[in-house]
Design a protein around this nucleic acid. Structure first.
Lengths: 337, 337
DNA sequence: TTGTACGCGTTATCAT
DNA sequence: ATGATAACGCGTACAA
C-alpha cells in the first residue's frame, strides 16, 4: 500500500520509487515502468497526509460559509458552486469546517490547524462583526478572499458588488416607467452595503430632479415584520406612492402581500422592485423585478484571486467591485397617469 | 509553532508536551500548566496532517454530491445541511472533492488518497450507473452511506425514501377529492425510484377500484420537453382527465403551463400534484401540492449511520426506508362534479 | 541512474 | 512523572 512496499517488491529504494511516481527525469525507463506496474497492481495511491506534511501544501481550500450554527447553505450556493469549479480546475479540494468541538476556534486557528492553502469566506451579518477574528485572519499569512466584504491584508483580497449602482439602476428603471413617488424600504444601514443602497436611491432621485421625501424611506431590517411595518408606514403617510424599491426579495414579497391585503394590485396599481434575485422572487406571481448580485461571478473572481495568491507568494490582486444586473420581470410597469 | 518548539522553551521533552496537551493523566500539574501556558503564548495548534499520519484518523468525511462536472449543489442542499450538522456534532469536518486533475479517479481512490474516515454519497442518475466504481467502494472498507440509493457492503448503509408510498398517498389524495380520471406523468423507469412511483400510482388506483387506463400513463424523463409531450398526449387522448400526478415539481410546473395555454385553470379545471417539494413549487401560483422527500431527515439518518460505523468497526446499521410526506397546497381541489 | 539519510509534526512504546 | 526512540508515509539534498 505504501511507497515502501513498492520498493520492496521492485527491489529498489523508496526514493527511486518516489521519483518514478512523481515523474522525475532521472530514472531509468525500465525501472520506472516496473515501478509503475507494481504500483498499479498494488492499487497504490499516495497518502496525502504524509505528502502534505513534507510538502507543506495540502491542496485544500477552506470554505467558510455563513453561520456555523444555523448551517444553511441555501443563500450561498452560487458562490459555493463558483469556488468548487474554479478551485477544482486549479487542482484544489474544498474543506468545510463543521466540527462543533472546535466552535470556539477562530478562522485563523482552523486554517492553521488543517494547514489549508487558502480560505474563501462568505460571512453573514453576525460574522462580519467579529473584527478581532478578521484581523487575526488578515495577519495569518494564509491567502484569504471574501465576497461582499472588505478584507485588508497582505495576502487578502475580495470581490464585492456595487450596491450603489444596483440600487440606482433599479430606481432609475422605475423613474423611466414614469414613477415619481417612489418608496424605499431598506434592510439596515449597519454595513457598507446598506448605506450604498440608500445612497443609490438618493442618487437616482437627485439625478432626475425628484425631491427626496423622508416619509418614503423606511427600513425593514430584512425581517417580515419589519417589511410589513415599513410598507404600512409608507402607504399611510404617502398613499399616492406608485412604486417601491425593497432591499431584499423576501421583504419585497412580504410587501406585495401587504399591498394585496389593502386591495392594491402589483404591478397595475403599484410597482415593486426587489433585490437579490432569489428563486422565490423568480417564481412568484407576478415574477419579481429585482437586482441580481452576480454571486457566481463574484465567487469566481474571488477564487481566481485566491488561487493566484496561493500559487504566487508575491501576488496581491486588487479587489474588484462587480456591477449588479437589473432583472426586469412582471412586478414593475408604467405608472398610472 | 510546533510541539518541539514548546519542548525547547519549557525544557521538557516532546513526549511530555504531547501528553500534557492531550490531557494525559500521567503528567505533573506544574509542568502541564507551564506547557499549556507556553503553548498559549506561541499560539500553538496541532498540525492535523502530522496527527492524521500517525493516528490513522483524519476526522474528515468525504462528501460526494452529484455530478462533479455540472457542479450544481442546488438539489442537494438539504442533505448537505444534514451532513454538516450531524457530522459536525460528532467532531468531523467535510471534504468536497473538486480537484479536476483527479477527475478520472474513482470514489474509492479519492477516499483512500485523502484518508477520509467515511464517505457520504449523493449520486445523480448518471453516477448511479457506475456499477464498477460503486462495487469498488463497497469493497473499500471505509464506511460509506448514500441517500436514495442502495449500497451493499460490509461497511455501507443508506437511507432512502418510500417512493411507492409517497406516490400512492398523492394519488389517494386526488381520489379523496373525487377524481377518477387521474393521469400519471413519470420521470423514467430506469431505477427503483421510478418503478416505485409507477407502482404507487397503480396501487392507489387498484385499492380504490379504479380501472387502469394506459393512455393516462406517460413519461417525461424529467425534461421540460418530455413533460410537455406527455401532458399533450394525455390531454389529447383523455380530454376529460381531471387530475394528473407528475413525478417532479419542475415537470409539474411545465405541465401547468401547457394546461394554461389550452385554457384550463389549475386547480379549478384540473388538479396537479408534483413530486419533490422544491422552492419553485412552493412559490408558484398556485402553490404546488407535492410530495416532500424528507431529504434533511434522510441525510441526518444516513450520517448518523455513518458516524456509528466510523466509531465502531463492528457496527453495520440496517438501511432505512423513509416515509414521504404529502404537502397539500393550492394546485389540487375537488373534482368538478 | 540510484541509494542513504534526514526531516516534516505528531503519537505510542518502553524505559527510567 | 518524564525522556528516548521509533514509527506514520513521503520528498529531497547529497553522496555514490
Amino acid at each position: 500500500m505504501s511507497i515502501r512496499e513498492i520498493a520492496k517488491r521492485t527491489g529498489v529504494s523508496v526514493s527511486t520509487v518516489s521519483r518514478a511516481l512523481n515523474n522525475y527525469a532521472d530514472v531509468n525507463q525500465e525501472t520506472r515502468l516496473k515501478i509503475m506496474q507494481v504500483a498499479e497492481e498494488l492499487n497504490y495511491f499516495p497518502n496525502s497526509s504524509a505528502r502534505s506534511l513534507v510538502m507543506r501544501k495540502t491542496h485544500l481550500i477552506a470554505l467558510f460559509c455563513g453561520d456555523q450554527i444555523s448551517s444553511n447553505f441555501d443563500a450561498y450556493i452560487q458562490e459555493i458552486n463558483a469556488v468548487r469549479t474554479v478551485a477544482g480546475n486549479a487542482g484544489y479540494d474544498l474543506l468545510i469546517f463543521s466540527n462543533r468541538n472546535k466552535e470556539r476556534a477562530t478562522y485563523a486557528t482552523l486554517c492553521r490547524e488543517r494547514s489549508v492553502d487558502g480560505a474563501f469566506l462568505i460571512l453573514n451579518r453576525e460574522e462580519k462583526k467579529k473584527k478581532d477574528q478578521i484581523a487575526e485572519l488578515e495577519r495569518l499569512g494564509v491567502p484569504c478572499v471574501t465576497v461582499n466584504f472588505k478584507l485588508d491584508g497582505e495576502r487578502c483580497s475580495y470581490a464585492e458588488c456595487d450596491n450603489f449602482q444596483g440600487t440606482k439602476d433599479a430606481v432609475l428603471h422605475l423613474i423611466g416607467l414614469g414613477h415619481r413617488k417612489i418608496g424605499f424600504i431598506g434592510g439596515d444601514t449597519y454595513g457598507k452595503a446598506g448605506v450604498d443602497r440608500v445612497n443609490g436611491y438618493i442618487s437616482a432621485l437627485h439625478e432626475t430632479g425628484i425631491l427626496l421625501d423622508s416619509q418614503l424611506m423606511q427600513f425593514g431590517y430584512f425581517t417580515e415584520n419589519g417589511a410589513r411595518e415599513a410598507a404600512k408606514k409608507i402607504m399611510d403617510t404617502v398613499p399616492d406612492v406608485t412604486a417601491i424599491f425593497v432591499a431584499s426579495d423576501t421583504m419585497a414579497l412580504t410587501v406585495i402581500d401587504i399591498l394585496r391585503s389593502r386591495g392594491l394590485q402589483v404591478p397595475e396599481d403599484i410597482s415593486i422592485v426587489g433585490f437579490g434575485d432569489t428563486k422565490e422572487g423568480k417564481y412568484a406571481q407576478p415574477p419579481l423585478t429585482t437586482v441580481n448580485l452576480m454571486k457566481y461571478e463574484q465567487g469566481k473572481l474571488a477564487t481566481e484571486f485566491l488561487i493566484r495568491m496561493i500559487e504566487d507568494p508575491k501576488e496581491h490582486p486588487a479587489p474588484v467591485t462587480f456591477p449588479c444586473q437589473l432583472i426586469v420581470r412582471g412586478s414593475t410597469d408604467y405608472a398610472k397617469s
